[in-house]
Nucleic acid binder design. Sequence first.
DNA 1: AGCACGCCGACT
DNA 2: GTCGGCGTGCTC
Length: 805
Amino acid sequence: MSKLYALVIVDVPAMQTNHPYTYLVPKQLHDQVAVGKRVIVGFGKGDRHVQGFIVDLREDLPTQAGVTLKEVQEVLDLEPVITQEGLQLADWLADHTFAFKIRCLQVLLPNALKAAYSKTLKRLQPLDDPQIDALFGQSDEIDLAQLPAQFQNQIIHYRHQGKVEIIYHVKDKVAKKQVPAFKLLLTPEQLDQVAVSPRATKQLAMRDYLKTLESAKLYLQKPAQAASGLTSADFRTAAKKGWLEQSQVEQYRDPYADKNITATKPLELTPDQNFAVKSVQAHIDQKDNRTFLLQGVTGSGKTEVYLQMMAYALKQGRQALMLVPEISLTPQMMRRVKGRFGDLVAVMHSGLSAGERYDEWRRIERKEARVVIGARSAIFAPLDNIGIIIMDEEHEASYKQDEMPRYHARDVALWRARYHHCPVVLGSATPSLESRARAMKNVYTWLTLPKRVNGQALPKVELIDMRNEGKYAPVPDISNTMLNAIKDRLIKGEQTVLLLNRRGYSSFVMCRECGYVLKCPNCDVSLTLHMDSHSMRCHYCGHEEAIPQTCDSCHSRKVRYYGTGTQKVEEQLQSLLPTARIIRMDVDTTRKKGAHERLLQAFGNKEADILLGTQMIAKGLDFPDVTLVGVLNADTALDLPDFRASERTFQLLTQVAGRAGRAQKAGQVLIQTYNPQHYAIQLAKGQDYERYFQTEMGFRHRVGYPPYYYTIQITASYDNEAAAAKKMFTIAGELGKILSPQAQVLGPTPKAIMRIKNRYYYQLVIKYKHEPLLEDYLKGLLIQAQTEEKKGLKLVIDRDPLNFI
DNA sequence: AGCACGCCGACT
DNA sequence: GTCGGCGTGCTC
């Protein structure tokens, strides 16, 4: 047999190792290896074992002479875990996002399949070293991670002397759940001929039982034990006698073996909805990868449209993929999808354990699930015949991953749709400017749902000018107008949703005498007050200290809390409305698993009058008795140094306004603001997306931002401010040489929060339309920066960044 | 990333 | 003279 070589991407995330390495496939693994399977290979001087992905198999030697090849140690998968599509997608991702290939391959898989590494130290002979021998105790092998640092050097010596050896372990992060199974090796005739002592009653029973089974078929042992009344010991004996072969098979749990889901029927569609569904269906039929922008006002029944589009794709024998932002993947939403498609649905979201996520992934891979709904990473679901991809709330920033690979799920969706020849539907009440601009240029097909399904008008939105009303407000955060509106709902037995916009905002402690604000010693941010733990905490590095009684700077005792937390508002509200039942939803009250669901359910059951929360209550909630939506602070995000600040504010206000008046009763929306004249707030008041779009596009055009320009952000950080700045100025200088005059470089500037965990951050942003040299320069930059990385540099390149702060 | 090699200062 | 500091470079 000829030789076989495997090209392997190894799990060493560095620029220097960002290419395939060639390994020899030993004879006994020839029929196990395949492209897309994971392997364990030795890598580097100490021959440590790492995980890798086979990306190619060849019979001729692809590497130049001079290196002695190592062998593949082990093949980890029975079937490839990365498909041909996955390999191409990983290539594209690596290229598009400037990420390491290994990271792109890993992002395609559930975390459970990522490698967990450990090292153990094995004693090969007595060391005559009382201290270290004591560490070993009775055993000859110990966990190297627990070795005290002071022995490190000594161990290296012993290793050179061959007295100890380091063993590298690679295993999956999460063990697959295995259950015992067996296969009958003999035919019934053969079983009749085996000799069994008449006194071996158990074995006689076993023989009789086995005769009722088919040979060579795999049976689970547990049900077999129950059916036959035999024990696992009996099966073991039968295996020893060669009657059957025992093995372990993988079994997965279904996290949604939830029986309370009632089946739903397709609803009658409005003419607008029907037109949207029909348009997309035609493209599913034609296997045409058209992209649609479905722009429907809040309450226009987008979800029903999605469900019917997906049902159509399924009817054509294809699969459906639906993405929603993590926060709107509520039980309500899951119930709707499960109700329509039942067991065909796999759900991928962060609330699942790694094991559960893996099991859902396996159900998709085995084609038991043909509908996938999930947050960002679900876009990589291992479907092989996608008929439609839907992305709800397409404007949501959470679709962009902010670690390597920095992909946007929308870009991946468009890529996969091209591969599968299927349409993509981007849905939103407030599309991102990028998508809406593409719809205008007919790059996307624009579909609209301008009316609510219940025929209700959009809720009336009123602004409360806090510059005046704030002075007379009974409590700092709630004006009289707001309070009266809430009281009115209490009397009528209707419900209120109150939004506290906390983006870029936190409650901090300030001295009233000297203005001193308590800051984190490691980061350039003020510490946030946490009442649950009675401490001051840093949101970036986790630093925690006691709540100060006196000012650190002037020793005055007049330290006071500023800013607004949900908890403080809750107290204010309760003091004004002692009988009101309030549910508070924020990171503190939803930390526990399932808390999110429980609180919403309680509100839905009318166990409370007021739902008070942060952004997480702005989306997807649909409660018929909510007739008042109040926004307590509309403008905290407006002043952030980010050109998308107004877009986010407009989207948030429009979304939250849509929570009111979903059923028969009309809704009212009150927005407290200090910037009532700001166009984002004025146009959110009118819920006038069209004028907002025009206004914002004008602004983006004038200052040259997306969608008129592409952007790439480069961030450098060091533990030394001057070094970080110097690096960025060097890069800016080099960019000046390769960029055309049409491109612009903003910065370098220190980041808005310059210091986090004692590292200093500088950034620059490149705005450009067409720069043929830029990609190659940036790739070169990453290679060139690798030497400096040893000195503590961290360099991040982010294409199309969503956050500029 | 992690490991070895190699070239400089402070010690038995 | 050696031990061990960490800067440099490579890993199929």
